[in-house]
Amino acid sequence: MLKYILKRILAGVISLVVLITIAFFMMHAMPGGPFSPDEQKNVPEVILNRLAESYGLNKPLWDQYIDYWNNLLHGDLGISFKYPGVSVNDKIAYHFPISALVGGIAVVFSLLVGIPLGIVAALNRKKPADYGVLAFATVGISVPTFILAVLLLLLFGEVFRMPIAVFHSEQVLSYVLPVLCLSFHPIAYIARQTRSSMLEALENDYVRTARAKGVSELMVVSKHALKNAMTPVITYLGPLVAGLLTGSFVVESVFSVGGIGKYFVSSVSDRDYTMILGIVVFYGAFVVVCNLISDILLAIIDPRVKLDK
């Protein structure tokens, strides 16, 4: 087990190194730059050169790359280009908790709704409840998040006249729409997965044995079938947690949640080099850890899964 974990961490570190390298060079391959004279026409070229110098941008690319690594290994992600004087570390430390809170609620909500929906559908196979869940799941997978966000805005803002424009982290009501929007797709996916793996699990011999022994239907479902049907959901949990906790650009910008997801896109269009790399590092590490945890969890719950294959 320990050997497996170490191996996975090593693989994760290697992929992070490669990622940072790709992102670093792709970023510098983008036409223009934060201080390029073609784009900043109002600033004299001397000043632009000075700025570039102070950020180390006039050094050879290779030296900049080494410098970045040097800082990174000291835990320093650098100073943002867009927000002068603010370090990327602070930026992430400030905005990530907001995203993580909204995303965390969305993860819990999607599990609490998705799994029961899937179970209900599986137990009522080919009955109206099943078709209802299936229809919802198909629509949920087909409607893109950005459209859902806009439709929710239209519905709650225009029709119900709810205050939607401002997000207050203290108000419970502010969380309703972002969480609904974030969890819609996962709910649909989880319900679908749970339904099909429950159907499969219910056909197993041990379920028949349990029923024959006179175990109550509730126990059969919750203890025997469900535990075995959870494998695909847990596999999905790793990417889900990683995706939701780090924030979604659309949901955060539509509902003006001040989370980290917004910077994911805006830093690229702002050419905020240090911010882009900081987010790549942070996000990459987060994804690697999430996937590792979900794999270990899977091995604990389902001993049939061999960790070191």
Binding site: G12, M30, V265, G284
Partner: peptide
Amino acid sequence: ILTALPSLLYVLLIMLI
């Protein structure tokens, strides 16, 4: 390694290049 990050980031970088 390629799938470790969400594809949106690559897509954004490529679109800008």
